[in-house]
Design a protein around this nucleic acid. Sequence first.
RNA 1: GCCCGGGUGGCGAAACGGCAGACGCGAGGGACUUAAAAUCCCUUUCCCCUAGCGGGGAGUGCGGGUUCGAUUCCCGCCCCGGGCACCA
Length: 816
Amino acid sequence: MTSSTPNSTAAGHASYDPAAIEQKWQERWRAERTNSPDLTGAERPYYQLMMFPYPSAEGLHIGNVFAFTGNDIHGRFQRLQGHTVFEPIGFDAFGIHSENYALKVGIHPMELIPRNIANFRRQLRRVGLMVDWSHELSTTDPAYYKWTQWIFLQLLERGLAYRGKAAVNWCPSCKTVLANEQVVNGACERCGTPVEQRYLEQWFFKITEYAPRLLANLDWIDWSDTTKTAQRNWIGESEGAEIDFALAGADASIRVFTTRPDTIFGATYVVLAPEHPLVDAVTSSAQREQVRAYVERAGKRDLVARKVGDREKTGVFTGGYAVNPATGARIPVWVADYVLMEYGTGAIMAVPGHDERDFAFARAFDLPIVRVVAAPGDDAATPLAEAYTDNEGGRLVHSPPFDGLTTTEGKARIVAWLGEHGRAKPTVTYRLHDWTISRQRYWGPPIPIIYCDACGMQAVPEKDLPVLLPPITDFRPDDSGVSPLARHEEWYRVPCPECGKMARRETDVSDTFLDSAWYFLRYPSTEFTDVPFDAERTKQWLPVNIYIGGNEHAVLHLLYSRFITMVLHDAGYLDFEEPFMRFRAHGLLIRNGAKMSKTKGNVVNPDEYIERWGADTIRLYLMYMGPLEEGGDFRDSGISGMRRFLDRLWASAHEMRSDGAPDDAVIRKLHRTIRKVTEDTSRLGYNTAIAAMMEYMNTLRGGERVPHRAEVEPLVQLVAPYAPHIAEELWERLGHTGTVFSSRWPAFDPALATEDEIELAVQVNGKLRGTVRVARDIAQDDALAAALAVPSIAKFVTGTPRKVIFGPGRLLNLVV
RNA sequence: GCCCGGGUGGCGAAACGGCAGACGCGAGGGACUUAAAAUCCCUUUCCCCUAGCGGGGAGUGCGGGUUCGAUUCCCGCCCCGGGCACCA
């Protein structure tokens, strides 16, 4: 423990006291506005963005500290490279999470959130981040959500926001709509009550219209591959065809989507989703009652259970028939809930021979199974024990005149053939759905819409923004499926902006993810009240240079932010369409090999650790655990090593000598260290950068040598992004005025950073047999001679080597 | 089921296809000290031979392959973590 440490050392200088110097520098940074750059005059602007936190009542999570430190090091490093770095922070404080917590503890969120934010601010300051607090924002601030509402209106104006009915999860016990994430195995995550499906009018954003662009830009933006892959999967592009199946005896047809048009000759029935609009028209009177009962039952099943619950195939015959456009055969039309209305056309052609689900269904209901693709070695007559779904290598059979074609050829030829008769066209379908932004809750920005009996739906005029969220005390959701705001007449009733007669407000609030989909645009412009973001500022500071955050937002926040940016670009407000030039996903922080959670009681409280060790030590430790992009395992046992390193740094700066010349070998090591720390820091390889500094420290102080000032001073700068407080303090004690972050990053001399002599590894038949110390640029023959001069190597070599492999500067391998 | 990560000493981890285990923790031994702390030095993958000095062999989840040489590249598996999931 450090509390027992005496306040002066044997060497006579004061010992390292992190609490005192951290407080000193945090106060000085604040007083001197060290971290508030001039946003207008910056010549080399660098926008370092971190994911703003949700200010929970529990306070800052160590995972936040991990992510923010990772950002901060990069930001401070860029500043030392001569950039003007803008590193803002804010609070993502709206949302169901806050509201539920407020309901639970019985404190109004308008009271609770500012308290939590104050606590977060205190904790964030203690971490020593280079945050520009003069541009702090909160999404719950009317000055902010005014513009969230404005963005909604921009989408509305462009036809990208619309109202429609949608199935939602409803908890009959909590009397509220639940997000999909709040439904666990078909039950409410809070009370365990089975969730029902309800149909409600919802607001949607047409993100699907941007699917092709959202997908295409992934090819060039510099993002972590893991994140890009997650987005690609989420957008889920499928190439295939839409094909019309005429209804037998009626003047209508069912349009299906398939990725396997090559298998159409094997389509032995058609399936409609229970919600499909043609269900009634297809159903025969004999089957009507059964179909009605099935559709009703399917509608009652909650969405989650239907998709992830048991996969037992259920369905009902409609009594109707369709005509397979390829074979001309009459095939039955069924209704089954394994077909989803929300994907494709809500109808499929079932090819049981070549689709697992169709196969299972056909087996269950005794429908015909026909082989139309034969694997190599099989033929048309080979029986199918299971669906043969391989998309490559097979040849078409039972598909005259296309027999013998590969599946790939078959797809193109069959779609073209059906296309000639207007029955098919190639189509690309996306898994991505439109974004439901309505929330029937209280704690969010009211959607700025007014309904007038005379004039219809009206957008709230921009001059009337923001639509303030009223400070009501009764905000508990009820069974009506309507937001609690609807119960407050004085807010709900409002004059129509068009005709002035009394009208009604929209009572839904918008999704929290809309708040966070544009906050990075606001940061540089927080002082502007008449625009969401100032044109000049935005031009100078955006897009964001680098964004580091968690991959849990790969398909939510990061996708929505890209979408909103594209919309604002198309609307002429932005001259870029991708908001984040670089994105790096950091890994997950675990504790002693296990996930951190409140129930396990293994959550790390950053306050405690900073108290005990100092922020600089904790910052170093978090970054030293492993690669930032892979996360790490927080174990208390490792922290002391970081503190020891800082103690030694402190001692070095106090015990060093300034007279005479520095040691040549140490200076060489220093230059190699500068090179490695520079390279590693810029590519976020923080763990190895810290290791390199420690290695240098061992050289510096090995054998109780007294370091020279010229050997120590650059190390203070190298360590500064990682441990800013101690670096500032030592920089001052070394006689400098002003912050170390205004100094220039030390340069390395390539000549000094390279060793003249190296240890050349010598292998015989690929096995290491020894090393020889030789000149770095030694020629092969000389290296060979030097190696053979060593008896312990030579004894493995009999005669002349058959082959000599020489990697200059690396190794010599003799094959004998 | 599909898609991403990842499996290396007692532990956290390093290694442009080129000396596996840097760096740190822990452990053991030593120096300094009246003593302790701090600091500094040495040892620390496993097995075998040797009194010792030394020397030999194996080793990066498993099985193959490519290569003078593989933790690294390729093929086939196993295990762990995460995401998606009746997506036609």
